[in-house]
Design a protein around this nucleic acid. Structure first.
Lengths: 193, 193
DNA sequence: CCTATGCATTAACATAAGTTAAGGAATCTC
DNA sequence: GAGATTCCTTAACTTATGTTAATGCATAGG
């Protein structure tokens, strides 16, 4: 199993000492998802955290049949239902692979059990939450302040290449607009250029 | 200084042992804000975390003169520029008292210095971030899924009494609509009832 | 190779929400 | 207590975006 990417990602967020890493590594399990397969559906509980190695995962909420995309996860990131994990409640969100994907998973309760022995892992979790908080706040500010066109341009910077890998209606949903409106925006941008 | 409310709030999030609390208590400073006075303006750095004892504080972003309200803080909560504190960068957000307010403040770096001695304080910060994350996610889901009318009703549940204490244009901005549109929604609701 | 399916685009139309502007109630100030 | 200020409401109008529907590629399956 390819754990080097995971180690590098985590260690760069907060240093992990050797013993902590070997205890943690014992928890890791590889999994694969086919295109359109789900990691978690809303209403399900989960005990697992994930890291994406290959592919793309989307997160969306679901209300009366309508889907609202919230985030896309790219390789090297953590498509994990944090709220469901932390609260131990059923997830309100769905996590779905949009392409054939490879991931590493590990049990979150087992991870927390290591905190007593390895304080650096608790500090690591704190550092991850801090980083996620900062990213989310920056993202939210963009989405509120800007119009659809600007957010589309930001999307293309945030997720390079992604627009060529997934249908545009997923992007439109992420931007909070209809695919028709996205099409109009793209037409306008093409005219400008 | 009235530190009981702060102790109870924090201790209920994560238990704080007696020594940790007395070391922490030594950091606390009381402050007062007049109506419309700022706690932090965008572009400023800050070292301080706050707890609100009395009054109301709003958080908003500012773009080309337009203001976008993001949150309101009520007594017992923490009107703190978390992102600016954690990242040590200038704040993108403004924190402003909407009523005469009383707060407790403490230095965040000094608080972090206590982590070595009192691990329970680090666990407390982790627990606070977890809770904030969960609240924010729930809030975001509401705002994306619902229309203006539903969000206005949710606002009234989330912040009981607040709509009588502050101008309606602040509420409209929070809901992402114009004051005129909020007025139309209120007129419709009155007609239904 | 032909057909069916999924997806993006475009046009025509409908609708919800923004803009501008005016009036009036409530509150503050001198 | 008179005048000024603030702010909420309402109306008339404009605009942006959603809706419905038709067209045309491209790709996959038989």
């Amino acid at each position: 199993m390819e754990t080097g990417l995971l180690y590098d990602s985590l260690n760069s967020i907060h240093p992990i000492d050797g013993n902590a890493w070997s205890d943690f590594q014992a928890l890791l399990l590889p999994i694969e998802l086919a295109k359109n397969e789900y990691l978690i559906r809303n209403g399900e509980r989960t005990q697992f955290a994930y890291m994406l190695l290959e592919g793309v995962v989307r997160v969306f909420y679901n209300k009366e049949g309508a889907e609202y995309n919230k985030t896309f996860f790219m390789p090297g990131t953590f498509p994990t239902a944090l709220t469901a994990l932390l609260s131990n409640e059923p997830s309100h969100l769905n996590f779905q692979a949009l392409l054939p994907s490879k991931l590493i998973k590990f049990s979150y309760p087992a991870f927390r059990n290591l905190f007593k022995k390895h304080r650096c892992l608790e500090s690591l979790l704190l550092a991850i939450l801090e980083r996620e908080w900062i990213n989310k706040e920056r993202h939210d500010i963009h989405m509120v302040i800007n119009d659809g066109e600007t957010n589309y341009l930001i999307f293309r910077e945030e997720y390079p290449q992604l627009e060529n890998l997934i249908p545009q209606y997923h992007i439109a949903s992420y931007l909070g607009i209809t695919p028709i409106q996205l099409s109009r925006i793209r037409a306008q941008l093409a005219k400008k250029a």
